[in-house]
């Protein structure tokens, strides 16, 4: 029983990460009908932004709550800016082109970030940037303590704080999407961009805002990963990015609560397959889920079924 509980705790902690990344995919898809394949790499940039910030603040020597908050907010801000820049430079000029063009551009951006970050350091910068392919050790933002134990299941402050931050961010997003003017505009653009434009909604600004928001969530996810699994490298976004994409499709791409549920279910199913059956099938399970969803319920758990316009 305690083994089962431990698996649930582990699965939830991985699942919330997938959910946070999946939100970025799903929101961008909602407004643009674009799968932003560079999203996993924005997540990676989030981890490195936090890494540089933490070093600049000297977190490793003297961690405090204030610094942790600064690192969190800073890396979310940097990623939001990055998301904005990517959209402005790479996707907006192609918006009227066939959708495949943007998709391939997204893959190009992904490679640019992954391999650009593996280049040797540029001289004359105050920080070692780009970081190069060697994994870096992410400093501990705060001490890990076991808060309570249920049977043999140890639950630490990391687990609780991660879960709380993730849920807080998701609720915050839910509030933005359904209770604010920006969210209403976002939903209008998602419904039909040209009509929304005719109604006076600044479509470009809404799309930029969506990218910034999704990228900030990816940065938060990266930080939650990095504080408990302190190894970061330029390729770290690839696998979580793909899996979060699966989670988004599973939940119904374009649907915000769907992405959250999809992420949690994916995290839990991976955990149970790896824990109870075959650990070497851990990665395969995500893609098996993708294939089954596409075969059986292509619109996902909560997605709307839309007829393809011919």
């Amino acid at each position: 029983m305690s083994e089962f509980l431990q698996h649930v705790v582990n699965g939830l902690s991985v699942g919330t990460i997938y959910a946070l990344i999946a939100l970025g995919y799903t929101m961008v898809y909602g407004v643009l009908r674009l799968i932003n394949f560079a999203h996993g790499d924005v997540y990676m940039v989030g981890a490195f932004a936090a890494f540089y910030l933490a070093h600049a603040l000297g977190v490793a020597e003297n961690p405090t709550l204030g610094k942790t908050v600064v690192v969190f907010a800073g890396s979310m801000g940097i990623c939001a800016a990055l998301g904005y820049v990517i959209e402005r430079l790479a996707y907006r000029p192609l918006r009227e082109r066939p959708r495949l063009t943007s998709l391939i551009t997204a893959i190009g951006i992904s490679f640019l970030l992954e391999y650009g970050f593996q280049l040797p350091h540029w001289n004359g910068l105050p920080i070692e940037f780009p970081p190069g392919p060697t994994p870096r050790f992410f400093p501990e933002l705060f001490q890990r303590v076991v808060w309570f134990e249920v049977g043999e299941v140890a639950i630490s402050n990391y687990d609780v704080i991660s879960l709380a931050v993730a849920i807080g961010l998701m609720l915050g997003l839910q509030f933005i999407v359904y209770r604010t003017k920006f969210g209403t505009a976002m939903r209008a653009v998602s419904f039909d961009p040209s009509i929304a434009g005719l109604m006076g909604i600044p479509v470009d600004r809404v799309i930029s805002g969506t990218f910034a928001l999704g990228s900030a969530l990816a940065a938060a996810a990266a930080l939650l990963v990095a504080i408990s699994r302190p190894r970061i490298d330029p390729m770290m976004g690839m696998m979580p990015g793909l899996k979060a994409f699966v989670a988004a499709v599973f939940g119904g791409i374009g649907n915000v609560p769907g992405a959250m549920i999809g992420g949690l279910i994916l995290g839990l199913s991976e955990e149970f397959v790896a824990g109870y059956a075959f650990s070497s099938y851990r990665d395969a399970i995500a893609f098996a889920i993708l294939i089954i969803v596409l075969l059986v319920k292509p619109e996902g758990l909560f997605g709307r079924r839309t007829a393809e316009k011919v």
């Binding site: 582990n10 699994r229 955990e271």
Partner: peptide
């Protein structure tokens, strides 16, 4: 006898199974 793949971030599923 459990396994992982180099570069994985999370090993807790396997470790929990071993712990049991």
């Amino acid at each position: 006898d459990e396994s992982y793949k180099a570069g994985d971030q999370d090993f807790k599923a396997q470790l929990t199974a071993l712990k049991g």
